[in-house]
């Protein structure tokens, strides 16, 4: 068994727990100014992946660059992507499904 295996296993279990938390939190109703809290479990998961699995603290510069680019890309997805829902005035209504 590799020496770091228990550490990786714990991190993996933690990720699954956080996924469950994220799933549960998504079901709750928050005041608009508290909705940002929904992001916390996801951010914790990203941190665990970066620190434990990618070992970004000890990684060479290029690997750190790619990890940063990954976050930048996420920012692009969320930033440009939220431009639409933040300014949209029309939403689809519920439709009847054919049986």
């Amino acid at each position: 068994m590799p020496p770091r295996f228990p550490r990786l296993l714990i991190a993996w279990v933690l990720l699954l727990v956080l996924l469950g938390v994220e799933f549960g939190v998504a079901m709750l109703s928050f005041a608009p100014w508290l909705r940002v809290l929904i992001l916390l479990p996801a951010m914790a998961m990203a941190a665990i992946v970066g620190i434990v699995f990618m070992e970004i603290g000890r990684a060479p510069v290029v690997a750190r660059g790619f990890a940063t680019a990954g976050l930048f890309w996420l920012l692009v997805l969320l930033g440009l992507g939220s431009m639409d829902p933040l300014t949209r005035t029309y939403y689809h209504t519920t439709v009847e499904h054919p049986e």
Partner: peptide, 9 residues
């Protein structure tokens, strides 16, 4: 159905 502002950008 995307917002017009997003479409312009």
């Amino acid at each position: 159905g995307q917002s017009l502002y997003a479409s312009v950008v």
